[in-house]
Structures are given as structure tokens and as C-alpha cells.
Design a protein around this nucleic acid. Sequence first.
DNA 1: GGGACGGTCTACAACGATGTAGCCTGTGGC
DNA 2: GCCACAGGCTACATCGTTGTAGACCGTCCC
Lengths: 337, 337
Amino acid sequence: MAATMNDVAQRAGVSVKTVSNVVNGYPHIRETTRARVLAAIEELDYQLNVAARNLRTGRTGIIALAVPELSLPYFAELADSVIQAADAQGLTVLIEQTGSRRERELEVLSGARRHLTDGLLFSPLALGDGDEQLLDVDFPMVLLGERLFPDTVDHVTMQNVEGARAATEHLLGLGRRRVAVVGVHPGEVVGSAGLRLTGYRQALEAAGVPWDESLLGEAGLWHRSTGASAMAHLLDSGAAPDAVFAMNDAMALGVLHELQVRGIRVPDDVAVIGFDAVDEGEYSNPSLTTVDPGREQIAETAVRLLVEQIADKRGTHRPRRVYADFRILERRSTLPA
Amino acid sequence: MAATMNDVAQRAGVSVKTVSNVVNGYPHIRETTRARVLAAIEELDYQLNVAARNLRTGRTGIIALAVPELSLPYFAELADSVIQAADAQGLTVLIEQTGSRRERELEVLSGARRHLTDGLLFSPLALGDGDEQLLDVDFPMVLLGERLFPDTVDHVTMQNVEGARAATEHLLGLGRRRVAVVGVHPGEVVGSAGLRLTGYRQALEAAGVPWDESLLGEAGLWHRSTGASAMAHLLDSGAAPDAVFAMNDAMALGVLHELQVRGIRVPDDVAVIGFDAVDEGEYSNPSLTTVDPGREQIAETAVRLLVEQIADKRGTHRPRRVYADFRILERRSTLPA
DNA sequence: GGGACGGTCTACAACGATGTAGCCTGTGGC
DNA sequence: GCCACAGGCTACATCGTTGTAGACCGTCCC
């Protein structure tokens, strides 16, 4: 049987509350008493029962992170960063996978695990326009990543438009004029697909390059496989791109793969740039130029905002939106000729 | 304020315990009563306070998964599989990253979060020979993956020796005779590096191919970068391999990268095979032949064993060791000439 | 010398659920 | 008509901690 505070108290000859005070660092305790209590804790190998503290204080020390899929490298690396940032604040992370399914995302928001966690970092994919009121929850939450929602909730996001624009400009700067884009969601405006497409369009306009519908590669889910098939479709349709901006790295790697299978040289025939800066792109063949969206900064900021929300019991905080810094990581897939 | 069982009980005109019974599916309740309670729950939007239940029952419904790093694709995909398997059993997963650091692995075992979780799935890397007694913990635990420990604890592992042997035989079957191996940990026997090296050796012996020290590529951490530098070292040393067995996929991808940078053709000049079957290898250039160690089977089995341990309060269960099925996934990096 | 005050500590209630014991009521068997 | 018994429910204690109120002691100041 595990020891309780009571056992420790008896052994140290003090009240339970004093043990509690020692454990929680309450300052007004005589040194000798504190030493006795600590010794008793040591001897009994006492461990605080978190469940009991939770019940009493209403805090759990756990935050939830809801992401689409851990098997997507970006989210795995994001989770890594979040866990480390949370660790630094003494928090533990509980991961929920939504599988990009709307129903699972709603479940996360419904707060079924509300009592288990102090707050939620949420990276939604399936929710979108018209779901604003669903995000008006009564527990601490910070939205992560890409979608834009009204200013009713804290939001840490990457610079989708600017990053996409910079990526496209990077390709145009190589002298490429037939720049395809992969990952388009037709009709979407507020999602990351819509925003990144806007950045792409801005870059073309600024450079005076005409808009060409045939260079738009659609892809619903942003996986390696969908990137590969979007590229295949672009090639088969005769669009003849000389560069590709893939809206994330996973698709960019699919694009590289498809090009390589067909014997098309990268970057000589087609230059490729991605978005996300996952580790994988550093060792692909050729290595992948990409937009680094500031993943660690996003994780750290998000955890910090969440902690602030949790501390602010009155609910008086006003929602904030934070944009992370981005930069282009230049590698071989866009090496100048 | 969130509603409690007391609120529900008052509204339904029954005792708290009856509400508890309804919530927990206790059978002997009149239909009309059950309906009244359910209605009250609905009206008040009542959610069970898990912390309180935890305190009373000692169960939390959370299991911990301790892995080295989520940013390593294999562990991200393993986590994905574990979360899904746990979900199917109504369990939530809390992920701990040990960063392969011995001190963090010990912390996990010390059970600091014992009160927060019902059990632990543990994939140790830094612990090894001589640490057996540390694994003799007094909470439910299942060891995952690769290292072998004495039979005092449940263990779900991949077939390291057999898989490595099959991988090496696959290369030998292509007619290659100078088969390098990457990821060697000199002196190690029980770890996955030691076991996979044994499989490699067995395959060579069976084929009558002489053992050549110069074909052993060392790599402490099994990352892409260490795979690349081990390959660079092999090439620079003049070992002149015509095939490489990388002990995991991450290193294999680093190997592919290094070969490509040097203009060495795969599989024509050097054939490459990995181990783990991460998604990434399917879209690398060229796509990566690998050993599929049965990741999902491992995850499902591990969760099942853990659930059994948790249910078995008496601690009468006898430790089991389960080996997952493996198979070779043949892709282009070992395409016959 | 008495009152104010801060430091140190204790007793007790409370968080929200569940386990245990036991009270009714109705049914069936003898 | 009485007892045994099961179904349906309630009352109360309890899990291990923390918040609140207050007791006690010594110091300091007027």
C-alpha cells in the first residue's frame, strides 16, 4: 500500500496539514519541522496522490493536445515541442487524435475530458466556417496552427499567407514561370489551404505572372500519397510546370517521389518547395527546400497562453492572436541552376 | 459551475447513489427511475467528475506511453497505433518522452505519475544490462519493442534476430556479397542493435559469406543524420559495400541521402534495406525496402496485456513475452538488376 | 504590563464520487 | 399466515488532499 499524508504526519509527529504545507512549499514552517517531515517522506517513499489533490483543487496538471494524426510528421514534431514546453511548466500532456474527423473534433470540444485536464491546445482541421460558436467553450483553450476563427479565443498561428508568398517568390526568383501549387481546396478561404493559395496568388501578381488554373493541384488530405497523385495529375494533364509549391512537406515529398519515378530531374527540370520544415525533408533526395513556420515558437507560445488562461480564473482575459516568425530553409530541391 | 451528482439527484428526486448506479450501468433499477435520472443528466448537462471517481476507485482510465522521441517517425506511428488501440478499450493515453536519457527513463519507472495512470507501456532505450531490478515495479507495466529483459515482466517485442536475418538474406539473395550493416553498438548484446547484428551474422554464416569488420557501421542514436555519417564513413574507409542493411528506417534514409549526394546509384551500385516500415520509406527516392516489424500488432497486444494486468488486482499473473509477426516489404531500393 | 502582531501549527470540513450496510416492498413457497 | 428472498433504493462513511478558522507562543512597542 502506498503511503498517504496521514502516514507521513504520524511518523513526523505533525498534522496532515503541515505535511501538505511542506509539500507545497508554504513558507512559514520551522526548519526543524520541515526537515522532520521531509525525512518521513523519504523513509516512507511517500508520493503525493494527484487524484486527491485534483479533487480538492480542481486542477490536474494535465493539458490536452488535440491533433489530427501523430503519424503525420508535422504533428508528431509539434507534439514533441508541446510536450517539452509543457514539461518546462510542470505540466503533462495528454494527446487526442481526431483523425481530421469532424465528429471527433466536436467530441474534443464537448469537454468530455474536461475534468481530466486543465486546458486544451486544439489544432482543428475539419471545423470551419460556421462553427464559430462551437469554439465558445467554458474551459481554457488555445487554438493552434492554421485555421482562422473570429477573435473570441486565443490563437497561435503561422504566417500562412506571407509564408506561402515567400515560398512562391523563391521559385519565381529562380526564373521559373510555370509554378504549380499542390494542396488546393477549391472554394476554401479561411483554412490553411485558402490562405496559402492567397499567398501564392499575391506572389504571382506581384511578379506579373499570369494566373493559370491548370497549375492548381487539388489534394484534400495533405499526405504524401495525395501529393504524389496531385503531381501525377498535373503532369498527365500537360500543365508542364517548371516548379511546384506544395502546401506542406508531406505532399512535397510525394511530389518529389512522383517526379523521381518519372525520371524528371529536381531541381533542373522542376524545382520544389514545401511548407512545415519537418525533419524528413532534410534527408530526402534531393533535400527539400521549405518554409519553416516556427513550430517551436508556436508550441511555446501556445503553452504559455494556455497557462495564463488557466491562472486567470476570472475569465477576464481578452483573446489574443500570435503569429510565429517564419523563414525559408533553402536546400537542394530549389538549387539555382 | 458544473453540475454534480448531487444536483442530478435532487432534480430527479433520488439519492446520489442511485444516480451513480445509473451512470455505471448497475442493472437493478426501475426503468422509470432510470429514465428520470437520465433526463436530469441531460437537462443539467451533467458530466462525471473523473477526479472524484479516481480518488474513490483508484482507477483513472489513463495509461502512460513512454517513448524516446515522438519526432522519430517510428515512435510517432507507434504512438498513433497505441492511442487507437487504447481508445478501443476506452482508455486515454498520456505520452512521456524520455529523450533516450537514462535519468528520464528512471523517472518514468519511479512512478511519479503512478496516481495519474493505471499502467505504463514502456519502450526503454537507455536502460540495459544490470537494470533488471529497476523494472520490478509495483504497478502494471508492459515493455515494448526491442530490448530484452528477464522474464519478470510482460514484454511485447519484435523479432529482431529473425527480421534482421531475413533482411540480410534478402540482400544476399540479390547476389550482393559485400553487405554493410549500419547502426552497430559495439559490445552490446541484449539491445536491438546487438540482436539485429546477430541476425545479420547468422545470415552471412548460412550463406558462407565471410565476416568483415570493415563493413560494420557504428551509430549510437538511430537517426537520419547518424545513418548518413555512418555511410559516409564506410565509403571513405574504402570498405566498398554493394549493399547496406540499416538497423532502422531513419538511418536507412540517411544512408540513401548520403549515397545520392555522392552520385552512387541505388539499388544499382548499392542496395539498401531498412527496418521498421515507417510511412516515410514508401515515398523516399528510391522507395525503401524494409522489415515490417508488426507495429500495429505490437500496439494492440501491448494494450491488451496491460488491460489484463490492470484487471488482475491480485498480481497473480505470470509474465508473458509476445513476438509480433514480421515480413519484408520489398520496394525499389533493392530492386533486382 | 497589556495589546497587537506575525510565525507556526492544528482541527475540521469539504471536494464529488463509490462501497457497504441495510431498509422497505412485493412475490412465492410451504 | 409466515418466512425467505430478491429487487430497488437510501444513508453514511470514505478515498487523500487542501482551504478556513483559529489556537498558541513569543516579540515588540507604548
